[in-house]
Simulated assay, not measured.
Amino acid sequence: MTAAVIEKATVDPFKGTPYENSPKGWWTEYGGALDVKSGVIYIPRGSKHVPCPWEKCKHGCRDKE
């Protein structure tokens, strides 16, 4: 007797958008996705703060880290 393996189907939340089948990257941690064709990264509103890498940021992003 063998145990049945139940695989959880993964649903792409970006199905039908340019971000469908986004590769994993730093944006994945923030619930985001990459449009491979354009190079645009989408981060959904309300996701945790993404620190700004620019040291001279005028929006105070680095202060929020």
Rank of each mutant, 00 (worst) to 15 (best):
T2W: 12
T2Q: 13
T2D: 14
T2R: 15
A3V: 14
A3S: 15
A3P: 06
A4K: 12
E7A: 12
E7N: 12
K8V: 08
K8G: 04
A9F: 07
A9V: 13
T10N: 03
T10H: 05
P13K: 04
P13I: 09
P13E: 05
P13C: 08
F14A: 11
F14S: 01
F14Q: 04
F14L: 05
K15R: 09
G16L: 10
T17G: 03
P18L: 10
P18W: 02
Y19G: 08
Y19L: 09
E20H: 07
E20I: 09
N21I: 00
S22N: 01
K24Q: 09
K24L: 06
G25H: 02
W26R: 09
W27T: 05
T28M: 03
T28W: 03
Y30S: 05
Y30N: 03
G31V: 00
A33R: 02
D35N: 11
V36Y: 00
K37R: 14
K37W: 00
S38F: 04
G39H: 07
G39F: 02
Y42G: 00
Y42L: 13
I43R: 07
P44D: 06
R45M: 14
S47H: 07
S47N: 15
P51S: 11
P51N: 15
C52V: 13
P53Q: 03
P53D: 04
W54N: 15
W54Q: 06
E55F: 03
E55V: 06
E55T: 13
K58V: 15
K58D: 12
K58T: 12
H59A: 14
H59P: 04
G60W: 07
G60H: 03
G60E: 02
C61L: 04
C61K: 00
C61A: 14
R62M: 05
K64D: 00
K64T: 00
K64C: 01
E65C: 07
E65M: 07
